[in-house]
Amino acid sequence: MKATVQTDFSPLFRERHSVRYFDATYKLSEQEIKELLEIAGSAPSSWNLQHWKFVSFTDAAAKEKLLPIANGQKQVVDASVTVAILGDLEANRNAEIVYGPVIRAGLEDAYAGYTSHQILFTQIEEAYAVSETSSYRRDEAIRNASLAAMQLMLAAKAKGLDSGPMVGFDADAFVKAFKVPQRYIPVLLVAIGKAAKPATATSRFPVERTVVWNGFEPNASNSPLT
């Protein structure tokens, strides 16, 4: 009987810190960047619609164009690659692409828990139709793209790289400068490369402050607000 190999991945999560200073001489190949983005794209998403688009900045001129939009944060230039994660406001249009092969293969048990693809597609379209006047499309775009962004940073750490997320940028200016279609909204930027300076570890709340067991109750002793 073969022994089960236990691997502790906790250092991957605990040692990931946001880096602001990158080694500008360190370069990643296109293939290495694609491997990172492939892993990022395996993140979970609602209905598996994969609500993300990645804009990768590796060219010096493109990075310089991005710099003022990112409020002069030099990491967008010095990092090997800066990835803009965009959220898809029309992810419902991905349904046919995602599920077409499943339908043609007759794999009815792969319809995200639905008994037929017709029921699945109808629910997706109804959700997006109703949401034209609500925040649903935007919420879903940001929520799911953020999952991919976090997975991208963990993928970078797993490969011995460093990363730094940024939300301090002018989203409207980004859309205009890089001709982003109306279908997408900028969610955040992630700089990836090799740190020139060690990241400063920051404190985190103890779990006792962030967890609430089984719901909030008035005057409950386990409330993080007490």
Rank of each mutant, 00 (worst) to 15 (best):
R143P: 03
K157Y: 01
P186M: 02
M153L: 08
A156W: 10
G193S: 06
Y184K: 00
D162L: 04
A195T: 03
V167R: 13
S163V: 12
A191V: 08
A156N: 05
R138C: 11
L189T: 09
D170A: 12
P165C: 05
R137G: 14
I185F: 08
A196V: 06
L154Q: 09
Q151Y: 10
D162S: 12
K157I: 02
V175Y: 00
I142P: 07
A171R: 15
A171W: 06
I142L: 14
L188V: 04
A155I: 06
F174T: 04
R138L: 15
A177T: 15
M150Y: 14
F169N: 01
A196T: 06
D172V: 11
A177M: 10
Q151A: 13
R143C: 06
K194L: 08
M153P: 12
K159A: 12
Q151K: 14
K157C: 02
V187K: 01
R137E: 13
A195H: 05
F169A: 01
A191L: 07
P181F: 05
Y136G: 15
A177N: 12
N144V: 07
V167Y: 00
G193W: 09
G160R: 03
A155N: 04
K176Y: 03
V175A: 12
P181R: 01
F174K: 01
N144Y: 11
Q151W: 03
L147E: 06
P181Y: 02
D139K: 12
N144T: 14
G168K: 03
L147H: 10
D162H: 13
I185Q: 06
P186D: 00
I142H: 09
N144K: 13
V180Q: 12
L188D: 00
K157H: 06
I192G: 11
P186A: 01
M153Q: 14
G168P: 04
L189I: 08
F169D: 00
R183E: 10
Y136L: 15
I192T: 07
I185D: 07
L147D: 07
Q151N: 15
Y136N: 11
A173N: 11
I192H: 11
S163N: 08
L147G: 09
Y136F: 15
D162I: 01
Q182M: 00
Q182C: 00
M166A: 12
K194C: 07
A191T: 11
V180T: 15
F178Q: 04
R183A: 13
G193V: 06
D170M: 07
D139H: 14
A195K: 14
K194W: 11
P165N: 02
D139C: 05
A171T: 12
K194G: 10
K157A: 05
A177I: 01
K176G: 02
A195Y: 04
L161N: 03
A196F: 08
A141T: 03
S163A: 15
D170T: 07
R183H: 03
M150S: 14
K194E: 11
P165M: 04
I185R: 04
K157S: 03
K179C: 05
V175W: 00
